[in-house]
């Protein structure tokens, strides 16, 4: 063994011994911090030895380097443990108090509206519906015309639309996604389209110019209104429990015929309460059989295929579920609101 290497090895053991002695003598956190400074600083003995590496023969250098690295790591570890021990020790010797607060840990979370949205998506995904999405800026054609709502048609009054100029607008429902999907795929189709929609409604407790919708569409041979009722009922049961009843009543949408509104029985189990305005029913949304005119726009043959579509407002369901009295609370993102979920 080369002489210089020997020197280093010797020094390592000296330093180790000295360190152990001093470490044992450290009686406070401050002592330990001092030790750390002494041994691990840039001017400390270990760093000093690293400086000598360059003077070694090439063949000796790795061994010495490795030894030094190990020394440094050991010292570091021992000091850290010592420092740590004073935190615990002070407590444990005097009065270990497990009720002291734990380290602050950041808590994240999912927005309650999205919790509901995710739940809805999950339920339909489980029933074989594929999730499809589209842009929020749409064309008049996809938002209206292809859904059998021609220009100047009275049913446009049901959608107070934000216009962007030219043929562009903010979609008033997620139904245009249905059109995009049918334009690019052939039946069978089973999809839901969740997303943001916009209508020119002045904000109040139950209206918002932006809201979230989930639209569903199923097109295949022999799809019937009974299938629609079945799938909506299945959704209701999965989402709200087995006691929920589903009611369909006539409605009107230009893109479905027959059209329906559907209601779920209220949580008051029909006794009548404030939420259902004593009707026993909660209005959820609309549904119906895809109007043959819509199939015409996407080149499906209505003699071969039939389909159903349904929609629902996510805010409405979230507000019912969490008893949120005012829709505007949802978009304020007040921490005191978000932290409740």
């Amino acid at each position: 063994m080369a002489e210089k290497l020997q020197t280093i090895v010797t020094q390592i053991s000296q330093i180790t011994a000295e360190f152990q002695r001093e470490l044992a003598g450290a009686e406070s956190r401050n002592d330990a911090e001092q030790l750390k400074l002494k041994y691990l600083s840039r001017k400390g003995p270990i760093q000093n030895l690293f400086g000598l590496l360059g003077t070694l023969d090439n063949q000796d250098r790795p061994q010495a380097g490795a030894e030094l690295n190990r020394l440094k790591a050991d010292v570091q570890k021992a000091i850290d443990a010592k420092i740590e021990s004073f935190y615990v020790e002070t407590a444990s010797i005097e009065s270990f108090d497990p009720s002291l607060p734990g380290q602050d840990w950041p808590v994240g979370g999912i927005h309650p509206l999205m919790v509901v949205m995710d739940e809805i998506k999950q339920v339909f995904a489980g029933m074989g519906f594929r999730i499809e999405e589209g842009n929020e800026i749409e064309t008049d054609y996809h938002n209206f015309e292809a859904l059998n709502i021609p220009p100047h048609h009275p049913s446009r009054d049901m959608h107070d639309t934000f216009y962007l100029g030219g043929k562009y607008l903010l979609r008033t429902h997620t139904s245009p996604v249905q059109i995009h999907v049918m334009e690019s795929q052939k039946p069978p189709i089973r999809m839901i389209a969740p997303g943001k929609c916009y209508r020119k409604d002045t904000p109040d407790a139950s209206h918002s110019p932006m809201f979230h919708q989930v639209e569903g569409l199923c097109v295949d041979k022999g799809v019937s209104f009974a299938d629609l009722k079945g799938v909506v009922q299945a959704f209701a049961l999965k989402m709200f429990g087995r006691d929920v009843k589903v009611r369909f009543r006539p409605g009107f949408f230009p893109f479905t015929e027959p059209s329906a509104e559907y209601d779920f029985s209220c949580f008051c189990k029909g006794k009548g309460c404030r939420v259902c305005k004593n009707t026993g029913w909660l209005e959820i949304s609309g549904a119906g059989m895809v109007d043959p005119a819509v199939f015409g726009f996407v080149d499906y043959d209505p003699k071969i295929y039939s389909g159903y579509a349904f929609g629902m407002g996510v805010e409405r369901i979230a507000m019912l579920k969490y008893e949120i009295p005012d829709i505007r609370i949802i978009y304020e993102n007040d921490l005191r609101f978000l932290e409740q979920f």
Partner: peptide, 21 residues
Amino acid sequence: YDNIRFELAPKINQTQEQNPN
């Protein structure tokens, strides 16, 4: 509408993969 039954055996389209996006 109340007299139309709830079809409880929905036809499931098994040819689609979930949307990876």
